[in-house]
Amino acid sequence: MEKWNKKIDYFLFLLAFISLLVALYLTFIYSRIEKEMGIIQKIFYFHVPGAWVAFLAFFIVFIASILFLKNKDIKMDIISHASAEVGIYFCTITLITGPIWGRIAWGKWWDWLEPRLDTYLVLWALYIGYLVLRNAVEDDFRRARFAAVYGIVAFADVPLVIISILFLRKFMPHPGPIIFSRGGLTPDMKLAFFVSLFAFTVLFILLLRRRIFLLRIEEEIKNLKNKLGR
């Protein structure tokens, strides 16, 4: 089992490495420079996959949290912990690339009228809160219970945040251009985008598995320390 896990991780590493290289090539060399927006449009190939992976990560937190409360299996807690941490990184990528793009496209770093940015900002705050909560509880089992409940609350909040932010602007004229409109993608851009999406997803799975592995080892060390300490 342990051996297999290692093999899978090596495979994932190779796959992530190669697909990321290919994605870089497709993004910067193969795909055309978009006429209206220019070179800044390339950010799209990182921004959107980052957003997708963050969402996937937080969904995993949600599912693992439910499973933890159901079976009280600490493994599920480790999965949600790892997934939230890795998800935050990808969410941060989205939050950094978004304003960089916005600076060029709208002439300002942040546009509060852009619902997707707002949504990801709230998402980021929710899961930073999740990690802060984990940090604030000493007892392992109690931490797992609290985190699981908050993991469920946070994810249930996501669709509500999206809806409310979308409708917040519904009857207001939107000044900036609508970013990332799907119709505008040419086949070469599509290829670059989907390869990048794939590469990001593989990278996420790899990072998630490594983080879970590390957290398990930390657990084990703590258990051993406890045994020796008494």
């Binding site: 929710l126 809160g129 908050y150 609350v153 946070a154 909040d157 809806i163």
Partner: peptide, 17 residues
């Protein structure tokens, strides 16, 4: 550990809608 300090951090993002 943080008691009252933590509540707004957890509550505010959830309460935005």
């Amino acid at each position: 550990k943080a008691r009252e300090l933590l509540l707004p951090i957890l509550l505010f993002p959830v309460i935005i809608p």
